[in-house]
Amino acid sequence: MSALYTVTASRFTLERTPFGKLVLTNESGECFEGVVPVRAFPIQSPEDGISLVSTDGKEVAWVDLLSDVPQSAQDLIRAELATREFMPVIERIVSVTSYSTPCTWTVETDRGTTEFVLRGDEDIRRIGKDNALLIADAHGIQYLVRDQFAMDTHSKRVLDRFL
């Protein structure tokens, strides 16, 4: 049975191999190749609570606050998270084909303009205590609205019709 290694941020080193894998070395000198960072609270607190998990799914390190680790490790963790996470942020709703579902939405995101199909009203969920929304399209892609009340008037009207 393998042991669970939970170490503080100051007690491990993190490096990237020439093949692109992250290698964590803990204070005992044990190396774990292919570790993957996983956010505990990806939407509400993306910089708090990050687990570094080995290839067999065991946590080998825990980071309470990403800002507590050295900048080089922060950069490696953020880069790895960016390659694994894909959640476009909706900045503006351009149009919807209908106010009944299913319907096609045309939106402007932080990654460009796109279209997706909203299957039902239940695919729009409020998250957290803020005014954030999570919208799932027909293919399972999650879109984030950071603050529904900060959007332009047209976008707010469209969201009001579906909420």
Rank of each mutant, 00 (worst) to 15 (best):
T83W: 10
T106H: 14
T101G: 11
A136C: 04
G128M: 02
M151N: 06
D123I: 01
T6F: 04
E122K: 15
N26A: 01
S98C: 07
T97H: 09
C103H: 03
I43H: 15
L14S: 02
T83V: 08
E91G: 13
I135K: 13
R78C: 05
S10Q: 10
V36G: 03
S67M: 06
F86P: 10
Y143F: 15
E108D: 12
P42D: 04
T104L: 03
G20K: 12
T83K: 15
K21Y: 06
L4Y: 03
Y5R: 13
R119Q: 11
D121S: 09
L4C: 06
R157P: 09
I93K: 14
T109P: 15
E80K: 15
T17W: 14
V94M: 11
F116V: 00
V94D: 12
V63D: 00
E47V: 10
T6H: 11
F86I: 06
F12S: 05
V94A: 04
S28D: 12
T83Q: 14
L52Q: 02
Q74G: 04
P88Y: 07
L66S: 11
A136S: 11
F12L: 02
L81S: 01
G34R: 06
Y5N: 11
P42Y: 02
K129P: 06
F41P: 09
D147W: 06
L163Y: 03
R126P: 13
W62A: 08
D130N: 12
M1G: 12
S51W: 11
A40H: 12
A40I: 09
M151P: 09
S72R: 14
E122L: 08
R146H: 08
E122G: 06
G20N: 13
E47Y: 14
G120F: 00
T25V: 08
F86C: 09
C103I: 02
V23F: 01
K129M: 00
R126E: 00
E85C: 05
G34S: 12
D64T: 05
L76Q: 07
V7R: 09
I93R: 13
M151F: 03
L81H: 13
A61G: 12
T101Y: 04
Q148Y: 08
S2A: 03
V145C: 09
D75P: 13
A73N: 07
D123V: 01
P42H: 02
L118S: 05
S72Y: 07
R161L: 01
I50F: 01
I141G: 01
G49W: 07
F116A: 10
E27S: 14
R11D: 08
R111W: 07
A9G: 14
R92M: 03
L65C: 12
R84N: 00
A136M: 04
S67F: 02
R78N: 10
S2E: 04
D64C: 08
F162V: 05
R11S: 03
D160P: 12
V96E: 03
S95I: 08
P18T: 05
D130W: 00
V60Y: 03
F19R: 11
